[in-house]
Structure formats: structure tokens, C-alpha cells
Amino acid sequence: MASLRDIKNRITSTKKTSQITRAMQMVSASKLNRAEVNAKAFVPYMDKIQDVVASIAQGSTETHPMMTTRPVAKTAYLVITSDRGLVGGYNSNILRTVMARIRQRHTSNDEFVILSVGRKGRDFFAKQGMTILESAIALPDHPTFADIKEITRKAVGMFSDGTYDEVYMYYNHFVSAIQQEVTEKKVLPLTDIQATGATASYEFDPSAEAILEVLLPQYAESLIFGAVLDGKASEHAASMTAMKSATDNASELIDGLTLSYNRARQAAITQEITEIVGGAAALE
């Protein structure tokens, strides 16, 4: 049986760990709040741009290379993961989904490329020997559009110049603080644009093509930015849940250890009394 001292040491160290995980849980909770606010601030922009794109797409016969499906020689997978661990199943869920999808669709590593947001995803795909064309790591906890502009610009640009012919995006969609769903979304080509509100018929200055030229890349970039915000909210939520269960497990462990500590203490006292009584009896 472990000595009293050993048990005491374990209790102290577990308590310290639980203090840390509890603090991390609270930090994640406040980050989650802000991430939700950020995601909400983005909604009006997304809705509006979607409305305008939809009304142009429906109102005119114009087609744009970004809206037409072409034969696929290469596919790009944009995968949004976190930079660090301690987020429960956040990264593994997404990476598992992407791997399953890749195995199902492709037979060789030459048929697709990876665009990675987040260090975990980049490291994982690099280890699998897959081509990573672009990666954005060390994003702040609350990214602004300027932070991810670089990768969205390249992701859209490489579609336009024919490096790849379609782009799928994978991220954890934030459902609630305890639930996140791995979501697959086809970003490019933009084939299903649906209006959220009433559409209007517009005058175009100078022309519908010129506007699509500006609008579509911006729209595709916004889709990606939206997913990054959504993914960040999920990341903070996942981290909060993971840290909560770590804290719960630690307190369970402490309860168990305290029980055995008390038993050991009692046993030691009983033994001491027996020894004293035995010693006194021997003297008589």
C-alpha cells in the first residue's frame, strides 16, 4: 500500500492540475463569448454579399469562370484546424473526415492538394506525405479579415489560374457550446448561390461582368473567412468542454485519493494504539 506521504503528494499535484484546467476552461469560455460576437458581426456582411451575388446571378445570363464547373484534374481541400491541442476531438474529427473523403475519391496523392489553416492540420498532412500548397498558422484567437486575407486570396487565385479545379472546405461548425459538427462545403466553383432575402433588379455600373469580376472573389473569400470564424468558435467551445471534463476527472481522482488517504491514516493510528496497548501489557 502506498504510504501516507505518497498519497498526499498525489493529491496535491492533482489539485494543482485541476486548478490549471479550471483556469483554462474559464479562459476558453470567455474566448468563446468573443468568438460568438465576432461570428455574429460577420453575418450582415455575408448575407448582403450573398443577396447581391444571387440577384446578379439570377438576373443576368452572364457566366463567370468562377461559376462554371470544369473537368476536374486536381481538387483542393481547405482544412481548418487549430494550432494547438487540448481541444478534445476537435482536430481528430475533422482530419478523420477529410482522410475518409480523400481515400474514397482519390487513388493517388497527385490528384489533390491541401490548403491548411492551423498547425495541427498542416503537420498531419505533411506526415501523410501530401502536398500542402499553402498554410496559415498562428492565427490570433479572434482573427480579423486582414489576418486570413493572405490565404483566402491565394486559395481563390489558384483556382482562377487553374492550379486546381474545385475547392472543398472542411471545418467544425459551431452548433452549441457542447456540440460541433464537421462540415464539408464546396467553395469553388460557386454553383449553388441562394438568396437569403428578397432580390432586386439592379443597374450595373459599368457592367454585370465587371461587377462579378470584383464580387465573386470577394464572395468566395468571405465564405472562407466565415468558416474560419465558425471554426474558431468551435475551437474555443471544444477546448472549454475538454478542460471541463479534465477538471471533473481531476476532482473525481482527488475524492478517491482522499478516501484512501484517510483509510491509510486510520490504519496507521490503529496500529499505533495496538502497539502502545501491547507495550503496556508487556510491562505488567
Binding site: V52, I56, S201, Y202, E203, F204, D205, E213, V214, L215
Partner: peptide
């Protein structure tokens, strides 16, 4: 009262 327009 401007006519509905979109311009970059």
C-alpha cells in the same frame, strides 16, 4: 430615390 444600382 436613386435607381437600384451595384457598382464596384
Amino acid at each position: 430615390g436613386h435607381i437600384p444600382t451595384v457598382a464596384p
